[in-house]
Structures are given as structure tokens and as C-alpha cells.
Design a protein around this nucleic acid. Sequence first.
DNA 1: GCTAAATATTAGGATTGCCTAAAAATATAT
DNA 2: ATATATTTTTAGGCAATCCTAATATTTAGC
Lengths: 219, 219
Amino acid sequence: MTPMKEDYIKIIFELGGINKKISNKEIALALDVAAGSVTEMISKLVEEKLVVHEPYAGISLTKKGQRYATELVRKHRLWETFLVDKLNYNMADVHPEAEVLEHQTSDRLASSLDNFLGYPKHCPHGGVIPDENGHFDDISHEMLAMAKDNEEVEIERFLDNHELLVYLTDLGLNVEDDIKVIRHDPFEGPIQIVRKTDQKAMAVSYKAAHNIFVRKTNG
Amino acid sequence: MTPMKEDYIKIIFELGGINKKISNKEIALALDVAAGSVTEMISKLVEEKLVVHEPYAGISLTKKGQRYATELVRKHRLWETFLVDKLNYNMADVHPEAEVLEHQTSDRLASSLDNFLGYPKHCPHGGVIPDENGHFDDISHEMLAMAKDNEEVEIERFLDNHELLVYLTDLGLNVEDDIKVIRHDPFEGPIQIVRKTDQKAMAVSYKAAHNIFVRKTNG
DNA sequence: GCTAAATATTAGGATTGCCTAAAAATATAT
DNA sequence: ATATATTTTTAGGCAATCCTAATATTTAGC
């Protein structure tokens, strides 16, 4: 297993390759490689029984591939947590470092790191950290953008996108914040919210609000 | 700069490529590659002005190459320190993990890690950790094997060799221990020593004693 | 000081992973 | 329903890094 194969497996996972078939093009776009390179690499992953490939129809992960992908996600997120919790990185800066470290992380190292960090459940932007056996809790797919006015929700997770994370850091909005939705401005305007703990009012852009996932906290 | 090139640079450094010319064969043996591969890679490193190569005479590091090598050593030893001090690895187990992590460590990460560890001067087996500018203190080249009977010395450093480190861990001898040499048994027999702090007597094999470096502590 | 042994370099190939361009298959739109 | 557009696969190449085998150079023994 090389780092590049790992990248393919992980991106297929992130594109939803557990449930549905992923197209060649999606992978090529996500990894920024040529379509031909994808076909070639996929055929190798098929040999290793990590993915199944129906030509022209799509690619999905086998059980083995899924296990592998969760391991990578686990390692990635443990490193992100380490960087933020111990080395004082900010959330928006950790992705590239974790991206390279994850490929060089033995199971033993992941396990020691997990212990050192106190078995965190979530990475800095709210993603679930799978446990050693690849188990992880369900995540919310409810976007902040869809929450109703006056609804009270907890910020659960941000998409792992640099621009977004910088924006949110500037804004001061964090994972686990309990907030109340005030109103949705028209014409794709910002969603106005208030953080319950300190009554801080914030305006979250329409686009950002589609990349923030929340969980209801009131009846 | 690829990880393999980094490995070449680092091994040339470790073989003494700052002061003397290193032979093709030494590198080939140390990296376990064919001699032809070394010649080829060296010619690339020459192009990048990292080494100078006098055909048939030997290879040594340029200033640029030295700078690069110390950076790698710094990263390697910071990781080793992290693994022992924070993740409770034992000294003998850290080398392979550090070996791969070092290649994926940005300067920023090294710097943050250094700070987190409290700017350690030495790695777990006593090697000097160069600072951010590549500066590092001189090291002792005085072998325990050469210390005279009744001499009192401090254990400064062990060679980074797995077998040796396992042996020393079992023996209970550590870097920074203050010891007194009792006697040298004949016929390459062990060196008998006593640790001053707890009066623990230890017999260090002749071979190990050639891989342990010490610093005199009495007049 | 010459010959044999050791060491170094060159040459030719393999593998991995990428690319571009051409060909094949599928999807879309009128 | 067929022509066009899109997507996928195939084919042929390139770069990095390794290998083995052949050749060249240096070192060492007698």
C-alpha cells in the first residue's frame, strides 16, 4: 500500500464510496489527476480487492477498502487533534500537515496518540474519529442553512475546507457552540444567529451555512 | 527533494560526510541498495549542489547538504523525544517511527513540536538535537570501553542501534547516568560499573561499551 | 611493478505513477 | 432517434528509483 493508493481509497470513501458508485471523473477531479490515471490506479486497487469496479458504471469500496479508509480517517483526525490541542495550531491550518502524517502512522503510533489525547471523539472541525476497530458514530447531515428561525441547535461539524475554516475562525464560531437561529436574510443573504453562552450575534454567510452541520437542541 | 534523496543526504551525514569523503560502497551498504543506484543518485545530488563527488575518490556534503542533513536529524530526534517523553515509547522502539515521520515534517511543525517538548537538547539515546538554525553542540567520542578503572563518567550517548538499545534497556543503563568504572574484565569481557546514584552494579559487554559514549565527571 | 581483488561507473531493464491523445462507450438534446 | 457531447478506457510516453551485468578504475599482494 503506497501513499497514493491510500489517497485514492480515502477520497473514494469521502465521496461516499461506501453506499454508492463513484465515477472516474469525480475521483479525477478530487485528486487533480487525469482520468486515465484513475482508471489505471483503480485497476490496481481492484486486484487488491479494495474496490469494486464496474466499467463505465462506477467504483465503490469493498469491506476491506472501507476498513482501510476509516483507518486513514482515524489517523488523519488524530493528528489534527494533536496539532490543535497540543501544538496550538488553529483549526484551519492542520489539514495539510495531517494529510502527510497520516500515511506514516503505524497502528501502534495511532493507538498511543489516541491515548495521549484522551481518546477524543471528534477532530477540531467536528469530524468523528473512528475507534481502533473502525467504529464511529453517525453524523448529522442537517445543514445550518436549513434550520428554522428560532430553532436552537448545536454546531456539530464543519466541512474540512480551508477557506471555510478560516472564515469561521475569524467569525469566532466553533464546533460545540450552542446557538439560536434568528433569521434567514433573503436573496441568499447570511443566516443571523446568536450564541447562547455569550449572546454573541453572528452573521453566517449563506454558502458557509451550507457547509456547517448542526443538531437540534430544543424540542 | 524526495524522501529517498533525503535518506541519501542523511546517511552521508551520519557516515561523516562533513569532514571526510564517503565511499560509494559505504552508502550502498548503509542504505542496502546496489552500488549502481548510489552512483546514479549521487549524480542527481551533485546537480542539486548538495554533495560534491570526485569520481572514484568519494562523496562529501556541501554546506547546503550539511544544512539539509542537520534539519533531518533535528526532525528525527524531535520525534524520538516526543515518542518517549509523551507517548511512553521505550528508547529502543522509536527509530523506525521517527525515520518515516521526519520526511513529512514541515519546519513549522518541527518548531511547534520543539516548543511543546520544551526545547530538549538531546534525544532519548543522547544524540544532540540541532536547533532551528542547524547549530548543535559537540559530542563526546570517548567510548565507555576506553575509560580507566576508577574513573567516574557520565553516560552521554548511545549509538542508535536497535539491538544495543534493547540490551541497555534490559540492563537498566540510561543516558545521563553518573557511573564509576570498576574494572575491565580480560579477554574482551564486560566492563564492570556502578551507578553512583543508587550503587547499582552493572556489567556492560565489551561490544556495548564500544557503542556507549561518556564524559569524564571527576578531575 | 604487475596481477588479482575490490570498488566504481555505465548500460540496459523493471516498476510505479503520472501524462496526453485517441478510441470506445454512454448520456443528452433536439 | 440520431447526432453531439461527455465520460471512460486504452495506448504510448516520461520521470524517478531500483536492479543486474558489464566495463573501467583503483588498491593491494607478492
